[in-house]
Amino acid sequence: MSDLAAKRGAVPAAKKALFLVFHIGSERFALKATEVAEVLPRLPLKPIAHAPLWVAGIFAHRGALVPVIDLSALTFGTSAQARTSTRLVLVNYQPQPWSEARRLGLILEQATDTLRCDPAEFQPYGLDNQQAPYLGPVREDAQGLMQWISVADLLTAEVRALLFSAELSL
């Protein structure tokens, strides 16, 4: 392949990003793939006493304890269905650019597809949902609307203090 052909092929891809697509019920959502550390099958979890219902528990992964939240329960109050396509997705949770990134597990339904698109295709939807600041812009395609989830905005300060050490609960 010539240098010119390589540059031509790289220009459109430079604007595009890879997203992990998943469902909550019949609704589609996406996580930016750069925030995803690993996709695992659903695993047994140890519950955390007095945690919000959407905190699914913790598990040991490569020598570290990882807290896990059920994104379906967080978003719509209903636990994720136990499907063969339900995954435990480890994300790099970093609520502030200066804070250390930590592993956070997300239980996601039908987390088996990816999408490569220009992030600018996701547009604000006009609502300021302060109860769910992690719900980002939406993208329309032939299958309907898909909403971008912001990993950094998933947890409140109180839940960060519960799940992680005090240094993250700024």
Rank of each mutant, 00 (worst) to 15 (best):
P95Y: 03
H23V: 01
E35S: 12
A142G: 09
P44F: 08
L106E: 02
I24W: 03
T114L: 10
D3N: 14
K16T: 09
C117E: 14
F76T: 15
R28I: 02
A60P: 00
T112F: 02
V11T: 11
F22S: 04
L20K: 03
L162Y: 09
A142T: 11
P52C: 12
P97S: 06
E167Q: 15
R103Q: 13
A73Q: 13
K46I: 12
G57I: 09
L135Y: 08
L115Y: 01
V66H: 01
L127T: 13
P44R: 10
E100R: 15
N129W: 10
P133G: 07
A37M: 11
I58Y: 06
P52L: 06
A37N: 07
G105Y: 00
Q143C: 04
S85A: 15
Q81M: 13
L108T: 04
A73E: 13
V89M: 00
V36R: 01
A30Y: 03
L162G: 04
A73I: 01
V36A: 01
A166S: 15
A120D: 14
E167K: 10
I58C: 10
I107S: 03
L104C: 02
S99I: 07
W54G: 01
L168W: 08
L90T: 03
R102C: 09
L155M: 10
R62V: 07
Q147E: 06
Q131K: 15
V151P: 03
P119R: 05
G144P: 07
T156Q: 09
R83T: 12
V39K: 02
R42W: 13
V39I: 15
W98V: 07
A73R: 11
A13Y: 08
L18D: 05
V89P: 00
A51S: 13
L74K: 13
G105W: 00
H50V: 06
F22D: 02
Q143A: 14
A6C: 07
E167G: 06
L127W: 05
E35I: 02
S26I: 11
A132P: 04
V55K: 00
L162V: 05
Q143F: 07
A111H: 04
R139H: 11
S169F: 06
L88C: 07
L71M: 13
P41M: 08
F164T: 05
E121D: 14
L155T: 03
